[in-house]
Design a protein around this nucleic acid. Structure first.
Lengths: 204, 204
DNA sequence: ACTTTTGTTAACCATTTGGTTAAATCTATT
DNA sequence: AATAGATTTAACCAAATGGTTAACAAAAGT
C-alpha cells in the first residue's frame, strides 16, 4: 500500500509546507493554519515541532539562504579572471533563481522588515567579500584591458541585471504579455546576454 | 495662534498618514490604528472619509502611480534619439525614486499580491508603450550606429539598473556599509553612469 | 501486559484588527 | 437662539490569528 504523503516524516512535511507558504506570503502574511493545512496536519503540531511562528520562519530562512550564499561566495572569492568570474556569477545566480523564482523578492522584503536580525541570523557576520573582484578590476584597468570603472557601480549593475527580472517577474510578464515558459527562456538567454553586455561595456 | 497640524484639513492629514504607513508596511501589513495615530485623529474618521482600508489604499496607490507614470510614458513615446531617450529616462526615473525611495518595492509587492486588480486600477489598460524605442533600436542597428541587440533584453537591463538599487536599498547599505547620504550620492552618479554604461555596450 | 514517552488532535483562549454605532461637538443657516 | 447638517469621538463587535491545554493514540521500553 502506497501512502505517498503520509509516510514522509511530519517534520519534513511541515518544513516543505512552511517554505511554500512563507515564500508566497512572507513572515507576516503567512498563516499558521495555512501551513498546517498544506502539510495535512493539526495546527498544534507546528508548535510541537517548532516553538513559534518566528522560530519556524527562521528555520526556513536559514535553510533557504544556505542554498544560495556558499556558491556565490565561492565564485566571488575565487581567482578566476574577471570575465570568467562575471560569467560564472551570472550563470550560477540565474540558475539558482530559476529554481526558486520567489526567493529574491522574499529576501529583499525580509531584509526590509528586520534588517539587523536578518544579517546576524543568516550571514553570521561574514558578508560576501567583493574585495578580490575590486582588485582584479583595478588591475585590469591599469593594464588597459578594460576601461576604468567604479567597482561599486559595476557590481550594482551586475547584481541589478541578474536579480531584478525575478523581483519584477509578475510585472514584466503582465506588461510584456509573456508566459512562464517564455520568461524562463528569456532568463536562460540572459545567462550569456548579461556577461556579453557587461564585457562590451568594459572593453576599450 | 499657530496650529501647524490642526489646521490642515482632516482628509489631507489622513492621506499623508496613510501614504506613510502603507508605503512602510504594504496593504496587509499596515494597521488602520497606526494611520489614525499618525494623522492624530480617531480611527472611525478613516472610515468616515474613506469607506474601507481597501478604498483608502486604492486612493494612495492611484495617487502614487500618477506621479510616476505620465512622465515616463512621455519619454518612452517621444521621438528623442535613442541615446538621449535612454539618458532622459534614467535621469528622470532615478530622480523620482530619490524623492520616494520606498515606492519601487511597494509597487513590486502590490503587483505580486494582486496582479490583475493592480493593472486595471492603475493603468486603466494602457501599458507603457515601448514600441517606438524598439523601432529606433532596430533602425540604429540597421544603420550600423549600434550593435544589433534584443530590445527586450536591453529594456530589461535598463529598468533593472535603474530600479533595483532602490528595491534592494537596505541590503546594499548593510552589505557595503554606506549611509543614506552616500547612497543618494551613488544614485546621483548613476544618472550619468547607467546611460554611459549602456551606450558603451551598444556602440560598435 | 503495563508503563512511559512521543506524536496528534479538538477545543479553547487572549489579542489584534477592520469595521460599526450612537452619542457628542462643532458649524452654518435661518 | 434654535435648528439642521456635518464632523469627531469613545465604546463596542465579530472575525481572524498565534498560541495553549488536556485528553487521546501510538510506539517503545520494561
Amino acid at each position: 500500500m502506497v501512502k505517498t504523503q503520509a509516510d514522509t516524516p511530519t517534520e519534513e512535511r511541515i518544513l516543505a509546507a512552511a517554505r511554500k507558504v512563507f515564500i508566497a506570503h512572507g513572515l507576516t502574511g503567512a498563516r499558521m493554519q495555512e501551513i498546517a493545512d498544506e502539510a495535512g496536519i493539526n495546527k498544534a503540531l507546528l508548535h510541537y515541532y517548532f516553538r513559534s511562528k518566528e522560530k519556524l520562519f527562521e528555520t526556513i530562512l536559514t535553510e533557504t539562504m544556505q542554498s544560495f550564499l556558499p556558491r556565490i561566495n565561492a565564485i566571488f572569492t575565487s581567482e578566476l579572471p574577471v570575465e570568467e568570474k562575471i560569467a560564472a556569477f551570472c550563470s550560477e545566480y540565474i540558475d539558482k533563481m530559476l529554481d526558486n523564482p520567489f526567493i529574491p523578492l522574499f529576501v529583499v522584503n525580509e531584509i526590509n522588515n528586520q534588517p539587523d536580525d536578518f544579517f546576524k541570523k543568516i550571514w553570521g557576520g561574514k558578508k560576501p567579500d567583493v574585495g578580490i573582484l575590486v582588485k582584479q578590476l583595478e588591475a585590469a584597468a591599469k593594464e588597459k584591458m578594460i576601461r576604468p570603472v567604479s567597482p561599486v557601480q559595476l557590481i550594482l549593475n551586475i547584481m541589478s541585471m541578474c536579480v531584478f527580472p525575478f523581483v519584477a517577474k509578475p510585472m514584466f510578464q503582465k506588461v510584456m504579455g509573456i508566459s512562464d515558459k517564455q520568461f524562463r527562456l528569456l532568463m536562460e538567454e540572459r545567462k550569456k546576454e548579461i556577461p556579453a553586455f557587461i564585457m562590451a561595456a568594459l572593453r576599450r
